[in-house]
Design a protein around this nucleic acid. Sequence first.
DNA 1: TCTAATATGTCACGACGTGATATAGTCATG
DNA 2: CATGACTATATCACGTCGTGACATATTAGA
Lengths: 109, 109
Amino acid sequence: MNADKVMKKYIPMTETAFYILLSLTEPRHGYGIVKHVEEISGTRLHLGSGTVYGTLTKMQKDGVITVFADEERKTLYEMTDLGKQLILAEIGRLKELHRNAVKYEGDFL
Amino acid sequence: MNADKVMKKYIPMTETAFYILLSLTEPRHGYGIVKHVEEISGTRLHLGSGTVYGTLTKMQKDGVITVFADEERKTLYEMTDLGKQLILAEIGRLKELHRNAVKYEGDFL
DNA sequence: TCTAATATGTCACGACGTGATATAGTCATG
DNA sequence: CATGACTATATCACGTCGTGACATATTAGA
């Protein structure tokens, strides 16, 4: 899948997909991602198995991530260059949301 | 609908729902929201009519917004106290995402 | 008069996250 | 050695959501 199509398909992405990608700063496997997301979200988020493995399979097909190593009972994934491009674009969108959130926050207090 | 259920149902919310709520710092009607969202998103976002009117109807049913005035060809909405509570909670979630985005951003450059 | 903008509404479609269910290996405790 | 907790992956049906197309009507300007 080409870069433009990937961007259109994945942006905006859900917080689930975002945290999965954000976990791949280093190679990780599905279950490791679940634990890592729990950690960086302050236990607020727990990803269901369907969510994690479904998303990983989809992202691999689209060239966002790739298999880093296939150990006997673990499949380690890492990000592709396209994946890095994608998450940087998503971070840009989040910054816009954050900017507007802070700007209008006072109106709701 | 009680506060707990509303929070569970609406958080996390999509950027579309977020910008619709954020537009109701003052009473607005559907079409006015579309224009306002285009403005604060730097024309990045354009909401389809199905999205806006569908979301407004749903939010009204759940007590997140209420009809402020029903002019002949415009229906103006405003936020309820529950709606304000909701968007403040969502802003809190966005701040967490933003914090993590900035924290890990460097790893993808 | 014709076109663009304003304004609302409905519907089918595809995509997504979720939780249940299933399977299986590992490891410590009693 | 058995039992339960944790690690690890996979699939499936379900409900929800945003979207864009289509429809309709009013108003303002060229």
